[in-house]
């Protein structure tokens, strides 16, 4: 082998080694596997509604079966659903043997909170579900919501009020979860397309200064390529977080967001 070929071989080996370290191997397991229940708390948020223009009833047939099967696979402790009718929420709670279900009409279809393996006490709220969840010795205060899809000003007001509610009540852990409809392209990779989404940026940062965005950097949560669904957490370490793609069917346009918290 000549000197030139040896140099090439060396360069290819260096490229391969760097590539293996940088790109690594595909990640398997999360979020399909349930977390160890003893020291983790799993929260799922999912807008299970479908775009109305497609004329698909999300409560019907395969869609309902897929939603129920997905939640069953994930085995969450708390699950916040948006664009869900009360009837559908009751059906999910019944089929999955939830301990408690709270729902509120919002955005025409409703928001629901389901709980397992702990005690859930509703705390009222008209435009969102607000409850305190106790598991072991820790108390978690959660607001689940579906923020206004069209008006940034309305979103700002609704989310701001939800954060105020979370901050006022007593709790060890505070969680704001749901379809917040804030599209600020964080982690979206659209470096060139710098639309002026200044308004949502203001609202996002208002929340992010108070609570940690648990699933930041894990990719878009809604089609096409938007990050609209969030789990903001205060008072607990995030063990793992991500978006489970491939679970939406029909005209559904959101993916479930899964967050595992340290819970000791």
């Amino acid at each position: 082998m000549g000197r030139g070929a040896r140099i090439e071989l060396l360069l290819f080996v260096v490229a391969g080694a760097c590539g293996l370290y940088g790109f690594g191997l595909p990640r398997f397991g999360f979020p399909y596997e349930p977390p160890p229940k003893a020291d983790a708390l799993r929260i799922v948020t999912w807008n299970v509604g479908a775009a109305r223009d497609f004329g698909v009833d999300v409560d019907a047939g395969d869609v309902a079966a897929r939603v129920i099967a997905t939640i069953a696979d994930l085995q969450p402790d708390l699950c916040v659903l948006q664009e869900v009718s009360r009837d559908f929420a009751v059906r999910i709670a019944t089929e999955l043997d939830a301990d408690r279900m709270v729902s509120r009409p919002a955005r025409g279809r409703g928001v629901a909170l389901l709980s397992w393996s702990g005690r859930l006490d509703p705390e009222g709220g008209d435009e969102y579900v607000h409850a305190v969840y106790r598991k072991g010795r820790r108390r978690l205060r959660l607001v689940g919501m579906h923020a206004h899809p069209w008006s940034a000003t309305e979103r700002n007001e609704e989310i701001g009020r939800a954060v105020t509610v979370l901050e006022k009540g007593r709790a060890d852990v505070r969680v704001l979860a749901g379809d917040l409809n804030l599209d600020v392209d964080i982690g979206g990779g659209r470096d060139l397309f710098t639309e002026d989404e200044h308004l949502d940026v203001q609202t996002y940062n208002y929340v992010a200064e108070r609570l940690a965005d648990a699933a930041a950097g894990t990719g878009p949560t809604a089609e096409p390529d938007r990050r609209l669904d969030y789990v903001f957490v205060g008072g607990a370490q995030v063990r793992d977080a991500g978006v489970w793609k491939g679970r939406r069917v029909g005209a559904m346009d959101h993916h479930p967001v899964v967050v595992d918290l340290e819970w000791k």
């Binding site: 600020v184 392209d185 982690g187 710098t194 989404e197 200044h198 940026v201 940062n205 940690a212 965005d213």
Partner: peptide
């Protein structure tokens, strides 16, 4: 730095 469209950071 604050999160925004240029993705300078994911949290403040």
């Amino acid at each position: 730095l604050y999160p925004g469209v240029l993705q300078m950071t994911a949290s403040p």
